[in-house]
Design a protein around this nucleic acid. Sequence first.
DNA 1: CTGGTGTCTGTGAGCGTTCACAGTAGAGAA
DNA 2: TTCTCTACTGTGAACGCTCACAGACACCAG
Lengths: 344, 344
Amino acid sequence: MTMSNGAGGRRRPPTIHDVAREAGVSRGTVSRVLNGGHYVSPAAAEAVNAAIRKTGYVVNRHARSLITGRSDSVGFLLTEPQERFFEDPNFNVLLSGCTQALAAHDIPLLLMLAGTKDERRRITRYITAGHVDGVLLVSSHSGDPVAEELREAGVPLVQCGKPMGLRSKVSYVAADDRDGARDMVRHLLSLGRRRIGMVSGPLDTPGGVDRLAGYKEVLTEAGVEIDERLVVSGDYSRASGEAGAERLLAQAPDLDALFVASDLMARGALTALHRAGRRVPEDVSVGGFDDSVAATEAVPALTTIRQPYDRVSAEMVRVLLAQIGGEDPAAVILPTELVKRDST
Amino acid sequence: MTMSNGAGGRRRPPTIHDVAREAGVSRGTVSRVLNGGHYVSPAAAEAVNAAIRKTGYVVNRHARSLITGRSDSVGFLLTEPQERFFEDPNFNVLLSGCTQALAAHDIPLLLMLAGTKDERRRITRYITAGHVDGVLLVSSHSGDPVAEELREAGVPLVQCGKPMGLRSKVSYVAADDRDGARDMVRHLLSLGRRRIGMVSGPLDTPGGVDRLAGYKEVLTEAGVEIDERLVVSGDYSRASGEAGAERLLAQAPDLDALFVASDLMARGALTALHRAGRRVPEDVSVGGFDDSVAATEAVPALTTIRQPYDRVSAEMVRVLLAQIGGEDPAAVILPTELVKRDST
DNA sequence: CTGGTGTCTGTGAGCGTTCACAGTAGAGAA
DNA sequence: TTCTCTACTGTGAACGCTCACAGACACCAG
């Protein structure tokens, strides 16, 4: 019954020409229906739609791209080493959110993993060749030059997280790091903690800097003296959280709380505290940041600052598409929220 | 000094025509150089390559695809619910491996997440429209009809893990589940354990079935009676591992070992054992499966069966490209390896 | 010298779409 | 009526590439 195409082979798909013939109109009219339907009579539009359904027509994106110059696809560029991609579920959440937001616009997402310098160069060339209309960039060490490079090449770009230099205007979407950190430290203070240690993020990134700034501000406001022995920095990896907590325990054994700048690092810190025989939350309260899967999986479950990742990815896509459409770069800052669990 | 294209705008990139003019040859010759360089004189080839370097020419893939009918891109299709994608690092490893293997062939990877039925339908239509040359399919519940559907549409396809039905020939790459399970159970027996429980994978998948089969075989061979109270099944999620272990502890409190069919489930099992006051590995030895990041992060670190994910992804890409090139579907089974850590 | 063979090269056509333009028909205004 | 305006439609020309073909040239055998 079905006109199956022979084993394995694909039949030639119908073209806009076939649809036009079927509907009794011209290619131009079909094209107009396909692209918004302006200046098309209702009768013609109906005939074309019927013909599309009947023939099973799907637009050939290559032919379209050839003439429009757009690829109607965007790249998701992750400039992180493999191990970070493997261990941090935040990337999956962002990836999934962006894919879905793009799907609503019928735009495919090309995954670009640039862990090494070679890959970075290859991918940069691919992008600047115009194979994608824009790029969603995820990179924690925002010092990397790839954003600048792409901007200079005129590629629409949205970064996840605040970029470091402000040399050229680049769009970004970020959570309110400073405010989130303030909430967490206030929460720890409200529990009666005064010797609050911090494992910050990398200090060559605004995210790392801002969370640390929030921490110091609130302590100062509360009249608690800043003790530099209570502050170390990590790189968001689990291992660096563990090492950081260990160092803090050595430098300041009397600490009674720990604010760790990511959930993954916080899990590392839990391991270190456990090994040192400190009970959480009885002896030490621990607060994380992100509210990723890692927070609920931790034992005890982590009190943390929720970053609205679903909104982050949606906004990234929105801003990118706007920029592809010709609008100016934009910055979006989203509010965070304190989520209380068992670790405080 | 550099002829920068004005703010934000992209200049029209050089075409094959520009290269031909620059090199003093025809379009045809340039095209031949681009596609393997057969039937081209060394002098012409050198001139063309110099012209390409000078002009910064990059092929326009849309124009090429329009005439060749190939898209020179492949899709990575994940038919799993979001939560699974968020919690299981195995997906990241596969994704990364495939992306890199494809990059070596200059083929971009389109990420397709089909967690819901709607998404699945949309994506199937996209694929069958010929927008990708082939599909790398990752799906744990291999009962889902998407593989069949795509095969029937003549789309080259490689599945990760053995597919359930054998209705039509579909390529797949899988680890040797049965053999891996046998190794683990033998290892547990060698430690003197006799009451070995198992949390299997879903039994509507060959992976789940085969690991359970290996478990039973080895026990029988060793003269240990199979006790059905010692077997439950999960769905590879962490939560199901925790629930499974809890059920086993209730049904067979005397168990002295646990073989859990994935590392993630094994971590769940560790939580349940901890809560029940059983020490690992003193009271209960625990073995996982996969050797994912989850295994080393677990406390204690998990003894597990290593699946060679790097080779899996490389083979998936190899088989898919071969199939796109016209070869017949193929099945690849890769060996596993026992990795001893602290949990046994 | 003729004819074949093999290597290399240029040329026109065409892939399936969009876009600019020209053209038609009908309505309303002068 | 005639002219203008608007709504709609069809047509040729691109977009940048590959492919098939034909032609040129060199070489060798007969």
